Amino acid sequence: MKNQGAQAKTEKIAEINFLRGFSILAVLAIHTTGYFTKVQPYKTLALLGIWTDVFSQFAVPLFIAISGFVLAKNYRQNFPVTKFYVKRARSILPQYVIFSALYTAFNHWQEMQNSSLPANLKLIAESIWHSDASYHLWFFAIIIQLYIAYPLIIKGYDFCKARGKSEYFLTGMLVIQVLWMVGAHTSYANVIKVNGIAYLFYFTLGIYSFDHFVQLRAFPKSLTPIWGTMSLILTFGASFFIVIGLTTGHIYDEIPPYFTTGSELVYPVLRLVTFLFLWNLAGSLARSRNFFAKVMTRLGDYSFGIYLIHLFFNQTTINILSSHQIGPNQWVFYPIVFTVTLILSYAGVRIISYLPFSYYLVGFGQQKVVKR
């Protein structure tokens, strides 16, 4: 097992970049198909939106797992904790603060024009503190918490691993995560839903995957269709609870908690199977190096920046389509929003990457690719 970690530590792992590419495409899909909640009356278009949205929800868990993998690759035993925190803060806080300010202005421009400078600064500060300048920035609250907890998590994991019990530690994280998420959907534990605890299993799974890197890479590619089929079946299963809630007359935001509780029990299995499916696809791309592989590599490079800026283009595109009476009830809405958002986000990050200090804006520069 030690040799597996040593091999993974010294080589560039192309599969990780492809997984980042898959994840950012899924993020764009979520922020496009999520408008199925606006489809009235409930019909086939909404059903396809639900299935796509539920499947694509692997995006953030996979980003979290990748973070666990990369941290385990670079920071293991006896690493300087203070230096670790400084580097992690540098890799995420400048971008988070800058884009929180930009999205606050983007979403509250009229209000801010009529407010004083102190009031606007207070609004920006509150948006940074609450991670709500834009609805996708909740990711930063999660990853910051996991970065803070990493030294403790890796010590606990390595303690169990030294005794041949790493699977027990991983299972414990799964139990904590599921209990937390089930509790978050009940009136008895109506706590903050967006929290690092809700992703502990995926983060630890990334660490565990690093330790089993060679075994993962040896997975037979003949299993790819099986993993894909299982992922689709589980997607339909997890969606079932939402569909029932909608077909019984509930508005999406008002579906009773007992519907979503069932989904939370399915999600970890669905994510794990989807991860295996995508890992096999990434392995195939790493060997082929065709045009699609090159595109996915570049998307992986730019994934952090695309995540940061894509909602500017997403919301602007939706507003323009709305002014032309094209909305979520029409099929053409979804491919237009997804395609335009992807192209403009990719182009935007590429342009920004040529600017001085682009690392502090989008985590990427022409002379430096940031590995997270």
Rank of each mutant, 00 (worst) to 15 (best):
W279E: 08
I251A: 09
G237I: 15
T297W: 03
R289N: 14
F304D: 06
L285S: 00
T235H: 13
V273C: 00
D301W: 08
G305W: 10
S284H: 06
G262N: 01
Y258S: 12
T247M: 14
L299N: 02
Q325K: 14
L223G: 03
G237V: 14
G237R: 03
T261N: 11
R287T: 11
S303G: 06
V340G: 04
Y334D: 01
I343T: 04
P328W: 12
S284Y: 06
V337Y: 05
A293L: 04
W227G: 01
S288K: 14
L270S: 01
H250L: 01
P335Y: 00
P268I: 13
N314W: 06
T339Y: 09
Q330C: 04
H310M: 03
P335W: 01
S288M: 04
N290F: 04
T248F: 07
I226Q: 06
F241P: 07
V269S: 06
N314Q: 12
Y334H: 06
Q315L: 13
T260F: 11
F338W: 15
G283Y: 03
N314V: 09
P256S: 09
Y267C: 04
R271Y: 15
T235G: 11
P257S: 08
H250W: 02
F312H: 08
L278C: 06
T248L: 11
G262A: 01
Q325C: 10
L272F: 09
A238S: 14
Y307D: 12
E264R: 13
A282P: 10
L265R: 08
F313Y: 15
L278H: 07
T341K: 06
V266P: 10
F291V: 12
H250M: 03
N329F: 10
K294I: 05
T274W: 01
D253P: 01
V332I: 15
F313I: 07
D253Q: 07
S323E: 15
P225Q: 05
G327I: 03
F333N: 05
T317Q: 02
N280T: 08
G262F: 02
S263C: 02
Y267L: 14
H310C: 04
T261V: 15
V243Q: 13
R289P: 00
T339E: 08
Q315G: 13
P225K: 03
N280H: 06
F333D: 07
Q330E: 15
T297L: 12
F291C: 07
N329S: 14
V269F: 13
G327C: 06
T248M: 12
V295L: 13
L276H: 00
P256K: 02
L232A: 06
L285A: 02
H310Y: 03
V269N: 02
H250Y: 14
Y252H: 13
Y252F: 15
R298A: 04
M296S: 07
I242K: 12
I242D: 09
P257R: 05
W331A: 13
Y252D: 11
F240D: 05
F338K: 08
L278T: 02
P257E: 01
T229G: 07
L281S: 12
I309V: 15
N314K: 07
S323T: 13
N329W: 10
D301Q: 11
Q330T: 08
F291N: 08
S345R: 02
E254W: 00
P335T: 00
I233K: 00
N290C: 02
A347T: 05
I318N: 03
I306R: 03
G249R: 04
Y302G: 01
I242M: 13
L344Y: 03
T247E: 14
F304I: 07
